[in-house]
């Protein structure tokens, strides 16, 4: 059990994935980032890219926090003028992947390990094989990319890079239909309210 894992059990924190749909606007990354930094909250991973819809951008943000903190952050993000919609999910509610690239000296790797076994065991593939170095690529959860990192470390790993996390929301029906509603002057209830407020437990019964 990692120290972080132990810490999380004590503090009630866990990994959350925040998904933000936004207009494609200069400065918006800063506006979103300062919502975290102002509260001294660390962003573990951040990916931003065009979404399936033209002109709409998608942010995938990972952080380690309690649900209460994440909910409040999500509301502050959604409050920003150019943010269309915010969702947050636990790891169980999403399918996620991170990609990693590993550069190792070709001679060592050829001499000392069975490259083939390495690739098979770690679901990796070689992207580039040159005389001086080879670049492997693997995609998976953090532990999987970590495993290959550990395996390659003794063989003179030269360089390593891991991408931000990207995630598909299991329950999502996509954003196309919602966007059409946003474009209307009088949108439906679902669009003009925070998703998490809507799904709040049947709030109160006497």
């Amino acid at each position: 059990m990692s120290i972080q894992h132990l810490n999380n059990i004590i503090t009630g924190k866990q990994e959350y994935n925040i998904t933000v749909y936004t207009e494609n606007q200069i400065g918006l990354l800063n506006r979103i980032a300062i919502i975290f930094t102002r509260r001294k909250i660390n962003i573990e991973s951040l990916n931003t890219s065009p979404s399936e819809i033209d002109s709409i951008h998608r942010f995938d943000i990972v952080l380690n926090e309690t649900e209460e903190v994440v909910r409040k952050l999500a509301r502050q993000i959604e409050k920003q003028v150019e943010v269309l919609k915010v969702y947050y999910h636990t790891n169980e509610e999403i399918i996620w992947q991170e990609m990693a690239l590993y550069k190792v000296p070709t001679d060592t790797i050829a001499e000392k390990v069975l490259v083939e076994r390495l690739l098979r065991e770690h679901g990796a593939r070689a992207v580039v094989i040159r005389k001086d170095y080879t670049v492997f690529e693997t995609t998976g959860h953090r532990t999987e990319t970590d495993n290959l990192l550990e395996a390659l470390q003794p063989y003179g790993l030269i360089e390593f890079v891991r991408s931000a996390r990207i995630a598909i929301i299991k329950s999502s029906e996509g954003f196309n239909r919602k966007l059409r509603e946003f474009e209307q002057l009088e949108p439906g209830q679902e669009v003009s309210e925070n998703e998490f407020l809507s799904s709040r437990d049947k709030v109160f019964t006497m």
Binding site: E23, F182, E183, V191
Partner: peptide, 12 residues
């Protein structure tokens, strides 16, 4: 009207 901006939530 600004597409991404909802000035007020709909009353429930």
């Amino acid at each position: 009207h600004v597409r991404s901006y909802r000035p007020k939530p709909i009353v429930r």
